[in-house]
Write a protein that binds this DNA or RNA. Structure first.
Lengths: 137, 137
DNA sequence: CATAAATACTACTTAAAGGTAGAATTAAAT
DNA sequence: ATTTAATTCTACCTTTAAGTAGTATTTATG
C-alpha cells in the first residue's frame, strides 16, 4: 500500500481545510502550526497540490489556499496520485508468482482482499466524507 | 503495512524451502538462482533469518540451510519481525488523531478493518500453510 | 594437509524519501 | 513607492533501504 509521508500529510492538510474553511483562505503558517507539520515541507507539498488543481493558491500578503470546487468532489485517491502512491496496482504481497499473467503467489487471495478494501476506501471517500470525523486538531 | 524487500524475499525463500525440502540442505547459490534474488543480498537476509532461529545453517563444503522445526510451527509474522516490519502497530493511515489515547482520525475505521485482516493473515499463516500454493518457481 | 565450496562478517555504494535553506516573486496595505 | 506577508522556485542536506564487494571462517573430501 505504501502511503508516503507526503500523501499522509496532504490528506491531513486537505481534510482539515475541508473542515475549517468557509471559503476563507488558510495560509501555510497557520496550517503548519496547527497540524504540526514542518512549514517548509508543507509548502512544498501544497505547491504540488496546487499544480494538480485540487486547491488554488493566492500569493502575496493576505494570501493562502482555498478550494474552488466542493470538497465532495475531491476524492482521496486523487491526492495519492499526486505523490505517485498508486493504489490501483495489482501487485501482491510477494510481488512475484505470475502464471500466465495471473498472480498465483502463496498469499495472493488473503492479501488482495484487504488490499482491495483499502483501494475502495480511497476511491470512494471524498474530503467532505471524511472532514470532521476525526479529532479537532 | 510497509513490507520491506527483505521481508518479501524472506517469505519467498522460506516458503520455497518449505516446499522443496525433505530435510535436505538447500544452499544460497541454488536458492538465489532459482528465486532470482541477488546472491549477496540473499545471504545477508538468510544470516538474519538464521540468527532469529527460524532455520539453521551448516557452514563449509556441502553446507546450506535447513529447518529444524516443522514448517507448520513457523508463522509468517515471525519473519516480518526480523526485519522490523512490525504488523501489530495500531497506527492508522494518518498516523495522528489520538483523542484520549484512541485514534479518531478521519479514515480510522475504514482503514483499520482491512489492516486487521492483513495482520490476521500474517499471524495465522504458517509456512506449511502457504507452501505449494503458488507457482512452482 | 590442501583444496574447494559453503556461510558469516565488515564495510562500502547507490537511490529514493524526507526534509531544510534561501532567494525570488507576488500583491495587499499603508 | 515602500513595506510586509504570503507563495514559489531552485538547490541542497540527511536518513534509510537496497544492494554490492571483499575477506574471513568453516568443513567435507581427496
Amino acid at each position: 500500500m505504501q502511503l508516503s509521508n507526503s500523501s499522509q500529510y496532504a490528506i491531513r492538510i486537505l481534510s482539515y481545510m475541508a473542515l475549517e474553511q468557509d471559503s476563507k483562505l488558510l495560509n501555510a503558517t497557520q496550517l503548519a502550526a496547527t497540524l504540526q507539520i514542518p512549514y517548509k515541507f508543507l509548502t512544498k507539498i501544497m505547491t504540488e497540490v496546487v499544480k494538480a488543481g485540487l486547491v488554488v493558491s493566492i500569493r502575496g500578503r493576505e494570501g493562502g489556499y482555498r478550494f474552488e470546487k466542493p470538497t465532495s468532489q475531491i476524492i482521496v485517491s486523487e491526492i495519492l496520485k499526486i505523490f505517485n502512491d498508486s493504489i490501483e496496482d495489482k501487485q501482491c504481497v510477494l510481488g512475484i508468482g505470475f502464471c500466465n499473467g495471473v498472480c498465483k503467489c502463496a498469499l495472493h487471495d488473503q492479501w488482495m482482499k484487504p488490499k482491495l478494501l483499502m483501494q475502495k476506501m480511497f476511491e470512494e471517500s471524498s474530503l467532505a466524507d471524511i472532514a470532521g470525523k476525526g479529532c479537532k486538531q
